[in-house]
Design a binder for these strands. Structure first.
Length: 284
DNA sequence: CATCATACCTGTTCGC
DNA sequence: TGCGAACAGGTATGAT
């Protein structure tokens, strides 16, 4: 489900709720979420640890506790809910953390995940900088070092569709299917354009639109198309800004042409065949 | 190596 | 209305 803006929204929300609270109990209902570790050591490692900070890298949430990091990827449907009263678990509830604050007031951090794709890793503080899933991530879209020149270098040898390249987390981290379609539409770049053929003008436009769209989506607390919530009943409202994603068959907001949908490396891809026409496009 | 298909899961929507 | 197929904000893995 979530891309960078949604994960960042979750991070900011949870930060306001769980920092300085201590885990005093963990109930696990579906343990396959937890990687490289059995549930007993997961629980014993985390019990009596206090949340000190929450970071985000790409689409990963990194909960910092005393000398240990809980690294979480929400994948398609993972969600955290925070409650001050203990909720009854439903069929999609996989973990419940019971938290205590300084006054010993209890609260609950619940992990729900309909499709069970989400992952959790425990990583020691000393090893967090070499933890492979994080280490191999590419630059963040909002990093000031991400410029047209940077992309020029990055794309130089990539004879692949720009859509595929932008979705590759080892190149740029945090973009997903919604925002890639939106960014390519804004930059008027056909999703099948080979990355290494983009012109300087297109690269400049791409960088500008990427930063604008991601910044705005964070301000809007993410995009709720189907099921994204950053806690129970807390939805984003960036869906009102989408121009192509989910609008196949409707009119392009620029030129009124019917938006087309195709598939690129297995992912549904919506675009305007006129605004995003490939240069020298002789075929299909 | 690079690339592709398949796996991981469940729920919803679409087409006949 | 029913029923299977296709699809869904993602990524790791094994086969080719």
């Amino acid at each position: 489900m979530p891309e960078l803006p949604e994960v960042e929204t979750v991070r900011r929300y949870l930060k306001s709720k769980i920092i300085d609270k201590t885990i005093i109990d963990i109930e696990i209902y579906y343990s396959k979420i937890i990687k490289e570790m059995n549930e007993v050591s997961f629980v014993t490692t985390l019990i009596n640890k206090k949340f000190t900070k929450i970071d985000r890298t790409g689409k990963y949430l990194i909960f910092k506790l005393d000398e240990i990091n809980l690294v979480v990827h929400l994948r398609m449907e993972g969600k955290f809910f925070y409650y001050s009263e203990k909720p009854g678990p439903n069929k999609h509830t996989h973990l419940i953390f019971t938290l205590a604050d300084k006054e010993n007031q209890l609260s609950y951090l619940v992990y729900n995940d309909v499709r069970k794709f989400g992952t959790m890793h425990l990583v020691k503080e000393a090893e967090i900088n070499t933890f492979e899933p994080l280490q191999k991530l590419g630059i963040e879209p909002l990093d000031s070092q991400l410029t047209a020149d940077y992309l020029k270098q990055l794309f130089k040898t990539l004879q692949k569709d720009i859509k595929e390249v932008l979705l590759d987390q080892t190149k740029i981290s945090g973009l997903g299917n919604i925002y890639v379609d939106e960014i390519l539409f804004a930059a008027k770049i056909n999703p099948r354009t080979k990355a290494d053929t983009l012109t300087n003008r297109q690269l400049k436009q791409l960088v500008k639109n990427m930063k604008e769209i991601i910044t705005k989506a964070i301000q809007n607390q993410g995009t709720t198309i189907r099921t994204f919530t950053f806690s129970e009943d807390q939805k984003g409202h960036n869906q009102n800004n989408l121009k192509v994603y989910g609008r196949a068959g409707e009119n392009c907001m620029n030129c009124q042409t019917i938006l087309k949908k195709t598939k690129i490396t297995g992912r549904g891809t919506t675009y305007c065949p006129v605004c995003q026409k490939e240069k020298n496009d002789n075929c299909n």
